[in-house]
């Protein structure tokens, strides 16, 4: 099963890489916020798969907390962006 784990991780890692590129080059602030939102969702997936690899359901608590903080982060950045009005 290890090879399957590696496949899953590499797929998600490529996703993280693409969003990170968008996070760096993103022409506008709003593109960066979108990239960060997507990035966080993929990281939640990575944490959950890690929990499965380590066979410990305690890691799922971390995924829940990460999901909460990721949502809050998106909202905070979006509300900040609204202040940048034309």
């Amino acid at each position: 099963m290890e090879i399957l784990d590696i496949i899953v991780f590499s797929l998600m890692g490529l996703g993280v890489l693409f969003t990170a590129i968008r996070l760096i080059i993103g022409p506008h602030f709003s593109d960066r916020v979108v990239a960060l939102d997507t990035f966080n969702m993929i990281v939640i997936g990575v944490i959950v798969v890690l929990a499965s690899v380590f066979k410990s359901e305690l890691y799922l608590d971390i995924a829940i907390v990460y999901a909460i903080l990721a949502f809050l982060e998106t909202v905070v950045f979006a509300r900040y962006l609204e202040g940048n009005r034309k």
Binding site: L11, G15, L17, F18, I42
Partner: peptide, 8 residues
């Protein structure tokens, strides 16, 4: 997930 990253 890969598709999402590529889409972004």
């Amino acid at each position: 997930f890969l598709l999402g990253g590529l889409g972004v």
